[in-house]
């Protein structure tokens, strides 16, 4: 196994930090992602990642921590999307799209200013595509606390959230404060996006949010199983991605390693493909 787990993989402090942060981000994203699937919010979740990019690039500009920037951006984006619209999916998508587009424009400006005024090199790559190995060890406790808070919040709103996702009317008729519930959920979504942006970059954080959840609901009809399967896929993808990225230093001709985020995304997509295959085979089996 020496060829796979290259020397120094588990003893290197940056890798240890990466493994912990990656696992936290993957778990939180998977859980929130499954609930986002129930709400049909895949697109909104993705838009938040782009707004997180704005926050991240803005944070670099003023010298603040990227996690704070990601989180702040995603929270503002969540607020904007909540204000921009209810109504049919189509209108909601346009409203979400406008928020996304405005945010991306701002990221363009911030990144430009980062590069020109601060002469920060590689900031585009760091903010958008992540650089997990450069996360500082002081981020670990923050990430764990944030992750725990997100999971707790999700558990608190779970039941009203599911019912109001199925039918707003039905939920309101039972006295559920639907607006509060969806607001709180958007906050948890923003927190998941922030953590995931820290791991694989703001542009790619959609992968951890949407991929494992979408894969899990293909193979199970039970919410509790879906949560466990999605978390499993997320964690395995992240850890495998970290290992492969670490190893890639040895494979590549110029010892220019490939980014962690690339491998994580590929792992997630492969997992999604496998789950889809399983689902398709089962469906065929049922028909025969």
């Amino acid at each position: 196994m020496g060829w796979f787990f290259a020397s120094g993989l588990f003893t290197s402090p940056p890798v240890q930090v990466a493994l912990v942060i990656g696992a936290v981000a993957a778990t939180v994203s998977a859980v929130v992602g499954v609930l986002a699937m129930v709400r049909g919010l895949a697109f909104a979740g993705h838009a938040l990642t782009d707004v997180a990019a704005t926050g991240g690039s803005g944070a670099v500009l003023v010298g603040a921590s990227p996690l704070g920037g990601f989180l702040g951006g995603a929270l503002v984006g969540a607020g904007a999307i909540a204000l921009a619209g209810h109504g049919p999916q189509q209108r909601r998508d346009v409203a979400t799209g406008i928020v996304l587009s405005a945010a991306t424009g701002l990221s363009a400006l911030f990144l430009y200013l980062d590069a020109t005024t601060n002469a920060t090199t590689g900031v585009t790559q760091r903010v958008l595509f992540g650089s997990l190995f450069s996360a500082s060890s002081s981020t670990v406790p923050v990430a764990i606390e944030l992750g725990a808070a997100t999971l707790l919040l999700t558990a608190v709103i779970a039941r009203p959230l599911v019912l109001s996702s199925l039918s707003r009317e039905l939920a309101r008729a039972r006295g559920i404060p639907v607006g509060v519930v969806s607001g709180v959920f958007l906050v948890t979504l923003a927190m998941a996006v922030g953590l995931s942006a820290l791991t694989i970059g703001s542009l790619l954080s959609t992968a951890l949010l949407v991929g494992p959840a979408a894969a899990a609901v293909r193979v199970t009809t039970r919410m509790s199983y879906a949560l466990v399967i999605a978390s499993g896929i997320g964690i395995v993808s992240t850890w495998l991605g970290i290992t492969l990225a670490y190893d890639s230093y040895n494979w590549m001709p110029h010892h220019q390693s490939l980014p962690v985020s690339f491998f994580v995304v590929v792992d997630v997509v492969v997992a999604y493909g496998l789950c889809s295959l399983v689902a398709a085979r089962r469906a065929r089996g049922r028909r025969v």
């Binding site: 970059g201 992968a207 959840a213 979408a214 997509v269 999604y272």
Partner: peptide, 18 residues
């Protein structure tokens, strides 16, 4: 629909960045 679109999207971005 949305989930597959999202995954195609991030896979392309990740490949480009790699």
């Amino acid at each position: 629909r949305d989930a597959t679109t999202a995954l195609v999207l991030v896979l392309s971005l990740a490949t480009g960045s790699a």
